[in-house]
Simulated scan of single mutants.
Amino acid sequence: MNRHVKFILVAAILASLGFALAAIGWRVHLVQNLGLTLRPRPLAPFILLAVPAVLALVLWRAERHLAEHIPGVSEENPRHLQASLVFAFVFTALCTAWMGLLYVAARPPEGAQVVRLAVGLLGLTVALRGGLFAKLAPPALERPFDRDAWTRAALRLGWGAVGVGLVLIAAAALLPLKALFFACLAAALALVMLGLALRRAVRAR
Rank of each mutant, 00 (worst) to 15 (best):
M1E: 01
R3L: 10
R3M: 10
V5Y: 03
K6M: 12
F7Q: 13
I13Y: 05
I13E: 10
L17W: 13
A20R: 13
L21D: 04
A23F: 00
R27Y: 06
R27T: 01
L30G: 07
V31K: 13
V31D: 08
V31F: 08
V31I: 15
N33P: 00
G35K: 07
L36A: 13
L36C: 09
T37F: 15
T37D: 15
P40Y: 14
R41I: 00
R41H: 05
R41K: 10
P42D: 04
F46R: 05
I47F: 11
L49I: 10
A50T: 00
A50D: 02
V51W: 12
P52I: 13
A56M: 01
L57I: 04
W60D: 08
R61Q: 12
A62T: 11
R64V: 04
L66K: 02
E68S: 11
E68C: 03
H69W: 06
H69E: 15
I70K: 15
P71G: 05
V73M: 07
V73I: 11
E75I: 05
E75C: 11
E76F: 10
E76R: 14
N77V: 08
P78D: 04
H80G: 07
S84L: 09
L85H: 03
F87P: 02
A88Q: 07
A88V: 03
F91K: 07
T92F: 03
T96L: 07
A97G: 15
A97W: 00
M99F: 15
Y103G: 02
V104C: 14
P109E: 14
P109G: 14
E110Y: 06
E110I: 09
E110G: 09
A112Y: 11
Q113K: 13
V114Q: 15
V115G: 01
R116M: 06
L121V: 10
L122I: 06
L122M: 14
G123P: 05
L124P: 00
L124Q: 06
A127E: 02
L128N: 01
R129P: 00
G130W: 07
G131V: 03
F133K: 10
A134F: 02
K135M: 14
L136I: 01
A137E: 10
L141H: 12
L141D: 09
P144H: 12
D146F: 01
W150G: 00
A153S: 11
A154Q: 12
L157W: 01
L157N: 06
G158K: 02
W159R: 06
V162Y: 02
G165E: 03
V167R: 02
I169E: 00
A170L: 08
A171W: 01
L174M: 09
L174P: 01
L174H: 11
L175Q: 01
L175D: 01
L177W: 13
K178L: 12
A179M: 09
F181E: 12
F182A: 02
A183H: 06
C184W: 08
C184G: 05
L185D: 02
L185H: 09
L189D: 14
G195P: 04
L196N: 03
L196E: 08
R200Y: 11
V202K: 14
R203D: 13
R203I: 04
A204S: 13
A204V: 00
